[in-house]
């Protein structure tokens, strides 16, 4: 029963949108200005001109070689994050439901979580010949523990009273999971995915640098060998943007799927 949009509310919305746009651009504009200021005092191979960087970003998007490298890396990210959901959700769910499983699995997951990303990279180079296997393995190992603990926390946080209610209506174990736990698991999966995208993006290059003859890692390696600072920065920008786009997509999906949760409370 929303009010019909009137002229004044349309205006107000326009003003709000532009304010929002301004507010979200401002910090980046400040950063860019600071950078441009630094170029005045440092040699170009350390702090290249912004224009130069922008031109290289344009080059990335117009050269199929480079664009495909970006897409390869992006694909690996999405694949790893998705696989970590498929593996992590059942484990987290089982841990949340059974104390015995929790006691047994938790130390293992914690152990895996404690292994530094670079150690994984070295291990997989020795273990596997296949590039894709190496990279997926590292990323999945990094993401799964986070998914597991997010899902576990989500399941544990469910109000005992709702569980009693569902059981009072005679729900079987499977119905209990499907009707009550699953919506909470979905919420946790979104949290885990957001964390994992950030995680994976920070790690994927390390894995690619050491293990892969394709993807952004290789492009960066070449740029490094040529001391091509603008290109290094252009790739960095592309990757950061990639992360932004992914989190934005996840947040939009979350808004639709978890509509019942409403906005956050306690803030204007």
């Amino acid at each position: 029963m929303a009010n019909p949009p009137s002229a004044s509310s349309g205006n107000a919305r326009l003003r709000q949108t532009s304010l929002w746009l301004f507010k979200s651009i401002l910090p980046f504009a400040a950063l860019a200005a600071l950078w441009q200021f630094a170029t005045l005092f440092f040699p170009a191979f350390l702090f290249p001109d912004l224009l130069h960087i922008v031109r290289d970003v344009g080059q990335i998007f117009t050269s199929w070689d480079m664009l495909s490298a970006a897409l390869v890396t992006w694909g690996r990210l999405i694949f790893a994050v998705a696989v970590s959901l498929v593996i992590g959700i059942p484990i987290g769910l089982a841990m949340g439901l059974s104390r015995g499983i929790d006691d047994f699995v938790r130390p293992i997951v914690k152990f895996i979580m404690g292994v530094p990303a670079l150690n994984w990279v070295i291990i997989v180079v020795i273990w596997f010949g296949s590039v894709e296997l190496r990279i997926s393995f590292v990323l999945v190992m990094l993401c799964v523990p986070i998914t597991v603990f997010c899902v576990y926390d989500g399941v544990r946080a469910i109000d005992r009273k709702l569980t009693d209610m569902v059981l009072s209506f005679g729900a079987s174990r499977l119905q209990h999971v499907r009707l009550l736990l699953w919506p909470y698991v979905k919420a946790s999966a979104f949290t885990a995915t957001k964390l994992n995208v950030g995680n994976a993006i920070r790690t994927v290059i390390v894995a690619e640098l050491v293990g892969a003859p394709s993807g952004i890692g290789r492009e960066l390696d070449m740029a490094k060998n040529l001391f091509d600072m603008p290109m290094v920065l252009a790739w960095t920008l592309v990757m950061v943007t990639m992360g932004f786009i992914m989190s934005f997509g996840i947040e939009q999906a979350e808004r639709v799927v978890l509509r019942w949760r409403g906005g956050s409370h306690g803030r204007e």
Binding site: K161, L162, D164, M165, S168, F169, L179, L180, P183, L258, W260, R261
Partner: peptide, 13 residues
């Protein structure tokens, strides 16, 4: 046989 609780215990979604 079913039960009505003190709080409503509805599923929020």
């Amino acid at each position: 046989i079913t039960r009505i609780f003190q709080e409503d215990r509805l599923l929020p979604w």
